[in-house]
């Protein structure tokens, strides 16, 4: 079945583009096999593969704490959460593959450092409280974005997001519960929770990406229903939900400019350090090198498993032929 990815030089491009945009306007999902602009496909591959890589790399900061969890219960929760992230990476690679890119090519791009993933995972996890704050704030920010993307016009991406959101909610709740417990715990627990919030608040706000005015892709992404909200809208939703809860827990936020605006009902944040954001995106964050090395090591150390499975399948094929 020939893939139908249209380019502006096609004689019927404008006509097909009009039909395509009308379909999206009617709320229809675009499915593999349907006509779509090559640019729609390119933007989706870019977003979905980055998203998949983020799930995979996202296992590392928290995975480091599995052996040091303070109780069996917390250990089981964390194992389940990290296992979920691995599964979410798989859902997303699958969604990207429906656009004609190979999983192997995407993983190669990650391991060689060409591919991007969420900058937030290039920060270190210094204490156990970080596990709680990552669940509450980092997963909280991710869920805001994913809930928006669950409305996406591309069927496979939308379905992956619906499944991820359903599972991810527990990540957010367990983190929130843990931080709230620490907030009313011993002075040391409160200090740990506050310190973790101080370190993760700004990276969490950066997760939604640059401001709308600096986000050149936004217009076309919204028009084609890939995104249904802009970066700043999603960021504002996240802030409005989390600020009152953090303050009510007796914790503070590391933003002296943060204030409530009664006219809009929004919590307004101070300036975000985009210089830091771009440095981390470019590979100069505190943990970029280590994250990539951990991924490469895991891939290399898993080689024997892949070889063994291949050999087993080949043996069974030979046996089947012999019979």
């Amino acid at each position: 079945m020939p893939a139908k990815y249209g380019v502006p030089s096609d004689p019927d491009y404008n006509e097909r583009l009009a039909e395509f945009e009308a379909r999206i306007k009617r709320g229809e999902k675009i499915e593999p096999g349907d006509w779509m602009p090559e640019e729609y496909r390119r933007q989706l591959i870019r977003m979905i593969s980055q998203h998949a890589h983020s799930e995979v790399v996202g296992m590392l900061p928290e995975g480091a704490w599995i052996t040091r969890a303070p109780s069996l219960k917390r250990k089981m929760i964390l194992v389940a959460k990290v296992q979920d992230e691995a599964g979410h990476g798989q859902y997303l690679y699958h969604a990207a593959e429906t656009l004609g890119i190979r999983r192997e090519a995407m993983i190669e791009a990650l391991l060689t450092g060409q591919a991007k993933y969420s900058s937030v995972f290039n920060y270190p996890t210094l204490t156990w409280a970080d596990v709680g704050v990552i669940g509450w704030l980092v997963d909280g920010a991710a869920i805001k974005n994913q809930t928006m993307l669950a409305q996406c016009s591309y069927g496979p991406y939308s379905r992956a997001m619906v499944r991820i959101c359903a599972e991810e909610t527990f990540h957010h709740k367990q983190g929130k519960e843990m931080v709230l417990l620490y907030a009313k715990g011993t002075p040391k627990q409160r200090r740990m929770a506050q310190d973790a919030i101080n370190r993760w608040w700004w990276p969490a706000l950066m997760m939604m990406g640059p401001h709308d005015k600096d986000s050149p892709n936004t217009e076309v992404l919204v028009r084609w229903g890939i995104k249904t909200k802009t970066n700043d809208q999603v960021r504002q939703e996240f802030i409005n939900e989390h600020v009152p809860e953090i303050l009510e827990a007796g914790l503070t936020l590391p933003d002296p400019h943060l204030r409530y605006d009664p006219s809009t009902g929004n919590w307004l944040h101070g300036p975000i350090n985009w210089e830091e954001f771009w440095q981390v995106v470019k590979g100069n964050g505190p943990m970029n090198k280590e994250r990539l090395e951990a991924r490469r090591r895991a891939h290399a150390e898993g080689a024997w498993v892949r070889e063994a499975l291949e050999a087993y399948a080949a043996k069974k094929r030979r046996t089947a032929v012999a019979v």
Partner: peptide, 25 residues
Amino acid sequence: YKQQQYYATVGSHVSKHRGGRGVED
């Protein structure tokens, strides 16, 4: 524990959930 209902803080502020579960460990 993979279900969100497992966590006492679901959907409302901490003020309504003083003495939530999980303190023991």
